[in-house]
Design a protein around this nucleic acid. Structure first.
Length: 253
DNA sequence: CTATAACCGTAA
DNA sequence: TACGGTTATA
């Protein structure tokens, strides 16, 4: 499957699903070459990071609740711990099938996560999130659970963010992650520590050495939305990926 | 308003 | 021992 002209990357996918499903999943209708060009016109100082963009795609959200719940594992955490945590969480759902001694589980529903015991998650190395994850799930259930999330998808970004941070345990960054990756709100610009440093370095020198407050988060996040509009999420990916790879951004992986 | 401690596990 | 988001507190 070719991605786009000028982009040497190709996908090799074996599946019984239709090619159109993968085009949708990886947003292949978006030309990253074009996105890159527009981003550099808007902000030439991004040039050093641009080489990481071709091949770096924001997937279109599919499993809303599953994605939202998975992101509850991410605050104040690193990828190396998040991945195994999500895997252990994913094994808490219903048994789908047993095959050759292996059990396949469905991802737990929000209600099932809400009912997980703190002790059970502590056992699974969730640390203090053994308390916070079911607590957040319970607050989601109070608001309608899966249905509440689906309804949020239809609402404007500002309202989505507002409603999400009402839950204790969901701050501005996590709310933006859920808005972007689970609810398809492409205006969301999650400001994690990497993004904060990039923003300070390139656009907010006055915040050098300052901590992130709610007000500053709002200001910087809004700046990215104003500066890049619909492309804010791509700018975010660009800077985030470079920061993750320590400036050694390549598309080999 | 802003800054800081505490939360937990990993090794950024 | 530093680190990473959020909350509670000063």
């Amino acid at each position: 499957m070719e991605t786009e002209p000028g982009d040497p990357q190709t996908f090799h996918v074996e599946s019984n699903a239709a090619e159109s499903d993968f085009r949708s999943l990886f947003r292949l209708e978006t030309s990253l070459v074009e996105v890159c060009k527009k981003l550099l016109e808007l902000s030439p100082e991004l040039a050093p990071y641009a080489k990481g963009l071709p091949g770096l795609r924001i997937m279109r959200p599919t499993a809303t609740a599953e994605t939202a719940i998975s992101f509850l594992c991410t605050p104040n955490n690193s990828l190396h711990r998040i991945v195994p945590m999500v895997k252990r969480l994913a094994a808490k759902g219903e048994v789908l099938l047993e095959h050759r001694g292996r059990t396949i589980y469905a991802f737990p529903s929000i209600g099932q996560v809400a009912d997980l015991s703190e002790a059970e998650l502590k056992e699974a190395k969730f640390g203090y999130r053994a308390r916070t994850i079911p607590e957040i799930a319970r607050q989601m259930i109070d608001r309608g659970g899966e249905e509440w999330l689906e309804d949020l998808k239809q609402k404007p970004y500002e309202q989505v963010h507002e409603e999400l941070i009402e839950l204790t345990g969901i701050g501005p960054k996590l709310a933006d992650c859920i808005a972007l990756f689970a609810l398809d709100k492409t205006e969301a610009v999650p400001l994690d520590t990497h993004m904060w440093k990039m923003a300070v370095k390139h656009y907010f020198p006055q915040f050098e050495g300052k901590t992130v407050t709610g007000k500053r988060y709002q200001e910087v996040s809004e700046f990215f939305r104003d500066q890049f509009g619909e492309l804010a999420g791509w700018a975010q990916q660009l800077l985030f990926y470079d920061s993750l790879t320590g400036g050694q951004a390549t598309i080999d992986a």
